[in-house]
Design a protein around this nucleic acid. Structure first.
Length: 602
DNA sequence: AGCGGAATGT
DNA sequence: ACATTCCGCT
C-alpha cells in the first residue's frame, strides 16, 4: 500500500468527499437553471425590488407586494413571457411539500421560507440579520481571525487540466455573463430581464460588497442561537466571526460572483440552519476509480484518484460558494506529501492551505474542549428522497469507529458475504443515537409521523417495528405535534414545517464516526455526547435494509409516488459522501448512506 | 386568494 | 426534478 492506514483513511474521506454529485448543480445557485426560490431570494436581496417583494413579518417571511411584477420578472428570467402569478404561485405551492416555503395564512401574498429546514449550504452566508430591521450583512467569509480566503475563482486557478473535472459551463464567458444576471438568452426576443441585470450590474460597479448582502436580511431573528455563527448572536461554537461587516474580505467571490448562475445572486446568503447544522446533502455516486479497489482486499489509490477528488472538492467548494466551514470537517487534513498534486494542479494546495488555516480555526474553536482536534464526524443518512428510499437509505445506523475498524468493516464487507442476520433495531439504540445538531430537528423528532420518513416506516415497519412505532404509528400529517420547537415562530403555521423531514435523521441517523477512538473501541458516547453504535451493528442494519430494498424496491417506487414529503433542502456542500460497500454476491455497490455532517459543535 | 391534481415540458 | 400550464374546487 502506498500509504499508511491513517493516510488512506484521509484519502478515503477526501475521496468520497468529491464524487460526481459534487458537480451536480442540485440546489446550487450557479448551476443548472435557476429555481424559483433562488430567484425569490435574489429579488429579496435587492433593494431595487423592495417595492415588489420584501421581507416582512416573521423571520423568513416575505410578502409579494406586486405579484404581477414578480411573475413578470420570473417569467423574464425563465424566458416564459406567459408567466403570471397564478402559475408562479403554483410553483411556490410545490415548495410546500418540499418544505422550502409555506404560506403565511391570512396574509395575502405572504410566504415564508422554511429556514429551519432550508439548509442552504450553497448559500452559506445568508445573513438573516440579528437586528430588528437593521440590515446586516455578513462578510461572506468569516475572515476575521482566520486566514481563510476564497481563492481567485478563475478557471485556471481552480480547475485542473483534467477535463472531467470541468463542470459544464462553469466559469465560461457565458457563465460569467449569467453571473451578472444576464440570462436574456430568450430566443424569442423577450428578454425582459434587464432589471435584474442592471441591478446586479450596479452592485458590481461598486457599491460595496456589503450592499449586496443586505437585501437578504429579513427583519428579525427568531433566536440568536440560530445564527450564532454569522448572525451576530452569541457564538458558542467559538468560530471566528468578523467583527465588522463593512469590510468584507476583498477576496470574497461574492460581490462579483464567479458563479454562472443568475447573478451569483445568492452569494452572500447564509443558511441559518447551516450555522448550526452544516448538514450536507449528498447523494453518493459511485466512483469507478474507487469501486474496483474496494472489491479487493486492499485499497489502492493512485495519484490520479487523489488529484481528482481533491481537486473536485476544492472546485466544488469554490463553485458552489461553500462555506469555509465545510472544511472544518477535515480539521486535520493532510495531503499526503509524496503524492501531492503537482503545482500545475493547485487545487490540492488550496485545499491544503485551507484545511490548514481551518484546522487552526478548528483548534481555536476546540480550545478548552477535551479533544483539540477530534477527528470526529457526524454522519447522516441521505435524505429520504424517493430515490434514496428506493435504494435504501433510511437505516443508516450510527457508529463510532476507529479508522481501522472502519476500514476493516468496509473491507470485510467487500471481501466476503457478510454474515449478517436481519434483526429489528431496538428502539433503545435507535433513540439513543439521536443526535440533535439542529434544534430544528427537535420538531422533526416529534413529528415524524407526517414526514418523509413515513413511507419507509410503513414499508419497513414489520422489520423495524419497534423503532418506528416509538414515535407513533400514525402517518397522519395532521397529528398535531407537541410543541417542542423553540425556534418556531408561535404564530406560524407550524404544522407545515413540523412535518419531519428527517425523523430518520433524528432516530436513525447522525451516525458518528469518531476517528480518534482506538481501534476496536466501541466509543459508545462521543465527546460531544453522541451515542454511537458498534460498527458491526451498523453494517448489519445496513445490510438488512439493503436486502429489504432488493426485495421490494419497485413496489416502493410506485408507492412513493404519492409521497410528497421530501428531504430538507440541503445544498451540496462538498463534504464526504457515504462509504460504499459491496454485496459480494451481487457485486453491486451499496451505498452506506452515511453522511458526514460535521463535528459536534456543541 | 389560495389549493392541489393532472398533464406536459425542459 | 422542477417547473409550466390548465383548471376545478374552496
Amino acid at each position: 500500500m502506498p500509504f499508511p492506514l491513517p493516510v488512506l483513511f484521509l484519502i478515503l474521506i477526501l475521496g468520497f468527499a468529491f464524487p460526481e454529485w459534487a458537480y451536480k448543480p442540485e440546489s446550487s445557485p450557479g448551476s443548472r437553471q435557476i429555481q424559483l426560490w433562488h430567484f425569490i431570494l435574489e429579488l429579496l436581496r435587492k433593494e431595487e425590488y423592495h417595492d415588489v417583494i420584501a421581507w416582512q413579518g416573521d423571520y423568513g417571511e416575505f410578502v409579494i407586494k406586486d405579484p404581477d411584477e414578480v411573475a413578470r420578472l420570473w417569467g423574464a428570467r425563465k424566458c416564459k413571457p406567459q408567466m403570471n402569478y397564478d402559475k408562479l404561485s403554483r410553483a411556490l405551492r410545490y415548495y410546500y411539500n418540499k418544505r422550502i416555503l409555506h404560506k403565511t395564512k391570512g396574509k395575502r401574498f405572504t410566504y415564508k421560507f422554511n429556514f429551519n429546514k432550508l439548509v442552504l449550504v450553497n448559500y452559506p452566508f445568508i445573513d438573516m440579520g440579528t437586528g430588528r430591521g437593521v440590515p446586516q450583512s455578513a462578510p461572506p467569509v468569516p475572515s476575521g481571525g482566520t486566514h481563510f480566503r476564497f481563492p481567485p475563482s478563475t478557471p485556471s486557478d481552480v480547475l485542473s487540466s483534467s477535463e472531467e473535472l470541468r463542470s459544464p459551463g462553469m466559469f465560461s464567458s457565458v457563465a460569467r455573463r449569467m453571473a451578472r444576471g444576464s440570462v436574456s438568452d430568450c430566443s424569442d426576443g423577450t428578454s425582459t430581464n434587464s432589471e435584474l441585470e442592471e441591478a446586479v450590474g450596479a452592485e458590481e460597479r461598486g457599491v460595496g460588497p456589503d450592499r449586496g448582502f443586505r437585501g437578504l436580511l429579513p427583519p428579525r431573528l427568531p433566536h440568536d442561537s440560530l445564527f450564532r455563527v454569522y448572525g451576530g448572536g452569541p457564538n458558542p461554537a467559538g468560530l471566528p466571526r468578523p467583527g465588522h461587516r463593512v469590510h468584507p474580505d476583498p477576496m470574497s467571490p461574492f460581490p462579483v460572483s464567479p458563479l454562472p448562475g443568475p447573478g451569483g445572486l445568492l452569494g452572500p446568503t447564509l443558511s441559518p440552519a447551516l450555522s448550526m447544522t452544516p448538514t450536507p446533502h449528498m447523494s453518493y455516486t459511485p466512483s469507478p476509480s474507487l469501486s474496483s479497489p474496494m472489491l479487493g482486499s486492499h485499497f489502492s489509490f493512485n495519484t490520479e484518484d487523489m488529484k481528482h477528488y481533491l481537486q473536485a472538492h476544492t472546485q466544488s467548494v469554490y463553485n458552489y460558494h461553500l462555506s469555509p466551514r465545510a472544511f472544518l470537517h477535515y480539521p486535520n487534513i493532510i495531503i499526503p506529501q509524496p503524492h501531492r498534486p503537482t503545482p500545475e494542479k493547485p487545487a490540492a494546495h488550496h485545499l491544503h492551505s485551507l484545511s490548514h488555516s481551518l484546522s487552526q480555526q478548528a483548534a481555536d474553536r476546540e480550545e478548552g474542549q477535551q479533544h483539540p482536534s477530534p477527528f470526529k464526524f457526524k454522519l447522516q443518512p441521505p435524505p429520504l428522497g424517493r430515490k434514496q428510499k428506493d435504494t435504501g437509505s433510511s437505516l443508516a445506523a450510527s457508529s463510532s469507529s476507529s479508522q481501522s475498524s472502519l476500514f476493516t468493516g468496509s473491507l470485510n464487507l467487500a471481501a466476503g458475504p457478510p454474515k449478517i442476520k436481519v434483526e429489528p433495531i431496538s428502539d433503545i439504540e435507535s433513540e439513543e443515537e439521536v443526535e440533535v445538531t439542529d434544534i430544528s430537528e427537535e420538531d422533526e423528532m416529534n413529528h415524524n409521523e407526517g414526514g418523509i420518513f413515513t413511507p419507509t416506516a410503513l414499508h419497513h415497519r414489520h422489520q423495524f417495528n419497534n423503532h418506528y412505532q416509538a414515535n407513533g404509528t400514525s402517518i397522519s400529517p395532521s397529528a398535531p405535534p407537541p410543541h417542542g420547537n423553540p425556534e418556531e415562530d408561535p404564530d406560524d403555521d407550524e404544522e407545515v414545517f413540523k412535518t419531519p423531514a428527517t425523523p430518520s435523521s433524528a432516530s436513525l441517523a447522525f451516525p458518528l464516526i469518531n476517528l480518534k477512538s482506538e481501534p476496536g473501541q466501541a466509543a459508545p458516547i462521543s465527546p460531544g455526547g453522541t451515542r454511537c453504535i458498534p460498527l458491526k451493528l451498523r453494517f448489519k442494519r445496513r445490510w438488512s435494509e439493503d436486502q429489504k430494498m432488493e426485495a421490494d424496491g419497485e413496489r416502493e417506487e410506485a408507492e412513493d409516488k404519492k409521497e410528497k414529503h421530501e428531504q430538507p433542502i440541503i445544498g451540496s456542500c462538498g463534504l464526504p459522501a457515504p462509504l460504499p460497500y459491496f454485496n459480494q454476491r451481487t457485486h453491486q455497490r451499496i451505498t452506506l448512506g452515511y453522511y458526514i455532517i460535521s463535528e459536534s459543535l456543541e
